[in-house]
């Protein structure tokens, strides 16, 4: 009994400690962020690493998710004689939920884990110390460009994911199952609202990007300088990042769409 209480206490103290370190990390990172915009070449390089290199997985996944939505939507809607609504259904599910969430989950696994591992290895090989010794601030030179790159690329990837998803839905519904092309688009156009659906979906995506950037970089900065340390930190980025995205999605959905 006492032992359990002690464990609970230790857990609480640890949690508070990490929260404190996270706060300090963010506090010191914040003033370094404008530097990322000033040094465009660093930002471009990171945008390539986290963005362009994630393109194939995002595009493939978007296409398949859209095709599945088209197929499932058609099977349900055809019973009510309203299979033209399959376009609306595909577009709305992608814009409001699946686009931002699935793209963010894929992004955590592809880019977030890579960022954590990279920074963790830089720490364990003393590269960050070396930068400090050369009077170059790693916050400005390493962290800031990566943070901004995540913040910029995830919303862009989400847009691409959604567009390809809708195209996938169209391929299945119109190309394969014979839904009328005109009805598919006009129904969608009539029911999808720019502010309500598109803008809200993109706000979600930006929020997820912030969360992933913070988790991935913080875990990188906390990595123990051993090989287990790096693998442990990478796993934590994926777990915390994914769960965080899903939790945050619920909160945002409750705030936006009720």
């Amino acid at each position: 009994m006492l032992k359990a209480l002690q464990q609970l206490g230790a857990w609480g103290i640890n949690l508070t400690r990490s929260a404190g370190r996270l706060g300090l990390f963010l506090l010191s990172l914040l003033p370094a962020l404008p530097y990322a915009i000033w040094r465009v070449s660093l930002l471009v390089k990171q945008t390539f690493n986290v963005g362009t290199l994630s393109l194939p997985i995002i595009m493939t996944a978007g296409l398949f998710v859209g095709m599945v939505l088209g197929l499932q939507g058609y099977n349900v809607l055809v019973d009510y004689n309203s299979e033209e609504a399959v376009g609306t259904m595909t577009a709305l599910s992608l814009l409001r939920e699946l686009g931002p969430v699935v793209a963010a989950l894929l992004f955590v696994g592809r880019a977030g884990s890579a960022l954590t591992a990279e920074i963790g290895l830089m720490r364990s090989t003393e590269q960050l110390s070396a930068l400090e010794m050369m009077a170059v601030d790693p916050l400005k030179f390493i962290y800031a460009p990566r943070f901004m790159a995540v913040l910029i690329t995830l919303p862009l990837l989400t847009l691409i994911f959604i567009a390809l998803g809708i195209w996938g839905g169209w391929l299945v519904a119109v190309g394969w199952l014979g839904v009328d092309d005109g009805a598919f688009w006009s129904q969608m156009h009539a029911h999808v609202d720019w502010r309500e659906d598109v803008v809200n979906g993109m706000i979600k995506s930006v929020a997820f990007a912030l969360l992933i950037a913070v988790v991935a970089l913080f875990q990188g900065s906390e990595t123990a300088p051993t090989s287990e340390g790096v693998s442990y930190a990478t796993t934590r980025t994926v777990v915390h990042g994914s769960l965080g995205v899903l939790g945050l999605d619920f909160i945002l959905t409750a705030l936006m769409f009720n």
Binding site: A91, L95, L156, L157, L159, I160, I162, A163, L164, I166, W185, M188, H189, A190, V192, D193, W194, D197, V198
Partner: peptide, 14 residues
């Protein structure tokens, strides 16, 4: 991204 945004803005939404 720009192509996607354009399609979503013009063809998908209002």
């Amino acid at each position: 991204s720009i192509i996607s945004l354009f399609v979503i803005a013009m063809k998908v939404s209002n």
